[in-house]
Design a protein around this nucleic acid. Sequence first.
DNA 1: TTGACGAATAAGAATAATTATCGTTTACTA
DNA 2: TAGTAAACGATAATTATTCTTATTCGTCAA
Lengths: 148, 148
Amino acid sequence: MEHSPTVGTRPFRELCADHGLTATHQRQVLYEVMQTMPGHPSPEEVYARVKKRIPAISLATVYKNIHLFVERGVLKEVSMHHGSLRVELNNHLHHHMVCSHCKAITDIEEKDLGVLPALQRLPGGFQAERYAIDVIGICAACQKTKRS
Amino acid sequence: MEHSPTVGTRPFRELCADHGLTATHQRQVLYEVMQTMPGHPSPEEVYARVKKRIPAISLATVYKNIHLFVERGVLKEVSMHHGSLRVELNNHLHHHMVCSHCKAITDIEEKDLGVLPALQRLPGGFQAERYAIDVIGICAACQKTKRS
DNA sequence: TTGACGAATAAGAATAATTATCGTTTACTA
DNA sequence: TAGTAAACGATAATTATTCTTATTCGTCAA
């Protein structure tokens, strides 16, 4: 099975350099796997997928690198109404709709939600970097199965 | 040590009745303790405080009643960029500023943030009930202790 | 009022999720 | 290519959450 080792590799190395991370094989696979999981995967789910490509990888490594990615801005932590850590790639701007009944999280585009006014001059000298909006309510499926 | 058992008791019983909860001693203490913790306490922190008044209480009881309070709308779950559940009294409308460095959460009034346009007609037939905004950034204290 | 019944509760046990530790291996720099 | 710091993997420890069960609470009929 022929493949070019440089395809996809260079962008990842650049990404690591940009974020001050050393580029390890495990991290690259972790990152690639998460690119194929567009939702809000749990660490266990990511681990299961990565294990197919690196059977010897440890769950602790997955946790450590997820936290590291979050810390360095490669991933974004999704505010949780789950029982476990959830993340997503820090790609395009969107927010979340959280069903208060079944806890499902779905994405909503910023344009479908409207934009907040400027984030300058917040109380206490807080320096804003971004904002995350959770719209909380009842999803369509739960509306059907629920009386009143 | 004399104290009037009705002071503070009746409002709590009313609150329970309003939310369809039976008024138990543990719940009352839990509620009273949380009133003295205006921030966004974790279950462990609440547990530590409650234990001073009810040494026999179990952490599980704290968790269960916190969840129950959230379910019935007495408490509100704070969207977390913490590793653990955080709650607050469900009092007035505000959002949160989360420091991505020290994880502190401070409240921000809705008027200081601006208001979102209407929440009608969301994609997928999602029925919105409320929204919660997290402004993520660096708090004043962390700005000082951080180079570049 | 009192006692039996059913529902709701609290405690502790059990489980799940996450983090810390530590010996070994790997990646970057000179 | 050797030196050094960082990362890895295994597993233990800790923390968070759920489950189970004995007990308690409130109600209602006698």
